[in-house]
Nucleic acid binder design. Structure first.
Length: 267
DNA sequence: ATGGTTGTGTGACAA
């Protein structure tokens, strides 16, 4: 059966509902993972998503900051949230979804951005980011017997030189420093994860999922970074049928600075 | 050239 999963940092779910609905109408993913919802759980627009065909909703939100939500057409159970670094941030949510005969644990993550100064000794936000990535090393693609895994989200790290507009100019910019990129690649390798985006769009093709709000013209300069990711356990990667980076969404009405990634699998 | 924009919620932060 065909299975389609999308991930999108929408930078406020309430403000962005019109374009989230546009994505749903145009793409109709089976599962939609949102990050940076910036919305307490009791104010989440649950009824709107139910009306759009997503009756199964898991959320981990907080007021004003962070927040992740997973919307599904198919039932899930065993929802787990992990409090990374034990600071009480709403940055993770996972659920075990029944897809045909298979069970898939879908992790939805929002890794700290890390501030501006790439020195953990003087920037606590960068220290927090590095600690968060360190804690991600315990997340294994084959963590549960008989359960496959997909990990999506805004990981706020662009690991490869071709994941940024200028490798040389971003080597000391938070999101592309060696300590971050090596840390994220270690999480992938040790956890037994497959990078589905790079499987479908292999190096050295440039791939970006984020463009700063601060640029005068995001598309003219095209100074993007690949901060959003979709990984899977090794058993799922042979079933990958397509990966779409919805670059056009950066130009939609009142856009997020991130665009959706849509991954299709034939399971 | 150390700028620039957006969001939450009306302040100062975070990104």
């Amino acid at each position: 059966m065909a299975f389609k999963i999308a991930t999108w940092n929408i930078n406020s779910v309430r403000l962005r509902m019109p374009i989230v609905e546009r994505l749903i109408m145009e793409v109709a993913p089976d599962v939609l993972c949102l990050q940076e919802t910036k919305c307490p759980n009791d104010l989440f627009p649950r009824e709107r998503f139910e009306a759009l065909g997503y009756p199964h909703i898991a959320m981990n939100g907080q007021k004003g900051y962070h927040g992740v939500a997973t919307l599904s057409k198919m039932p899930f159970d065993d929802v787990v949230t992990q409090d990374y670094c034990a600071v009480g941030d709403a940055r993770h949510l996972s659920a075990r979804i029944a897809v045909g005969q298979r069970a898939i644990r879908v992790h939805n993550l929002y890794v700290p951005a890390g501030g501006d100064e790439p020195d953990p000794a003087i920037n606590p936000k960068f220290r927090h980011k590095l600690d968060f990535v360190e804690e991600m090393r315990s997340m294994r693609a084959s963590g549960e017997p008989g359960v496959s895994s997909i990990l999506v989200g805004d990981l706020n790290i662009a690991p490869f030189p071709e994941d940024v507009w200028s490798h040389k100019q971003l080597l000391k910019v938070v999101s592309h420093t060696p300590v971050e990129t090596e840390g994220l690649l270690r999480v992938i390798a040790e956890g037994g994860w497959s990078d589905l985006v790079r499987q479908a769009l292999p190096l050295p093709e440039k791939v970006y999922t984020w463009w700063s709000y601060r640029a005068k013209d995001w598309t003219a300069a095209d100074r993007g970074r690949r901060l959003d990711h979709v990984w899977s356990s090794a058993d799922l990667s042979p079933h990958l049928t397509s990966v779409e980076i919805l670059r056009d969404a950066r130009g939609w009405e009142r856009p997020s600075d991130h665009v959706p990634i849509v991954v299709s699998l034939d399971i």
